[in-house]
Amino acid sequence: MLAKRIIPCLDMTQGRVVKGIQFVNFRDAGDPVKLAKEYDKQGADELVFLDITATVENRDILLDVVRKTAKEVVIPFSVGGGVRTVSDMRTILRAGADKVSVNTGAFKNPKLISDCAKEFGSQCVVLSLDGKKVGKDWNVFINGGRTDTRVSAIDWAKKAVKFGAGEILLTSIDTDGTKKGFNVALTRQVSQAVSVPVIASGGAGKLKDFVEIFNKGFADAALAASLFHFGELTIQEVKDYLNERDIPVRSLL
């Protein structure tokens, strides 16, 4: 059976991993290549790198991290942050990433998704969607969570998949960094609305949260950052817990 994936997320700025709460108040969490290698050893199923500043100077530092990571790890990893063109995507893939995530750039220009999918295949194109509750609905927020697009998260997810997104990395801004659990309702709605895998992100705090997001949120993968960076839980602990509850996870060998 296809295993549910556990994915550590490495938010980066200036070559360091940082972690914030609801997209602000960042604190340092270490060297990205070292962390990536460690998570690979611990049994992470995949890695997600996000360049949260995504400036031009940062791009070179990011590519350097991508090159080094590609040489060190033996699992797939995606890279995102500030991707605006097919050429941005090509540069990142050539540096050794397996997938590239697009967010604001794709929202402003959905053709970016189809152009990239055509060139590299849908499996390379991850739509990174930051959703936040506004009234009864969840809206898409762009520019690192600063701008409300007033577009429904579910509608955008469906549209992005039509354009060729092969996976959705769904972050709930409301739950991000709170450690009070994933956003089960939002994840379930998006997962049911699309035919591609959904990676749930934002809010993982305890073992039970992972069971909930798979069983009730219908997520295909769950992402966490601070939980793993600061050693509160190990990937193995999460996987053992899921395994005991009959949720399929990959075991090493």
Binding site: M1, K4, D45, Q123, V196
Partner: peptide, 24 residues
């Protein structure tokens, strides 16, 4: 319902081959 299949899945080995040495 979800296609493509993306992620880790198990392989049941059906043949003896030296290619599978060290692989459970």
């Amino acid at each position: 319902r979800k296609v493509p299949q993306i992620g880790w899945n198990q392989v049941k080995i059906k043949q003896r081959s030296n290619l599978f040495k060290g692989i459970g």
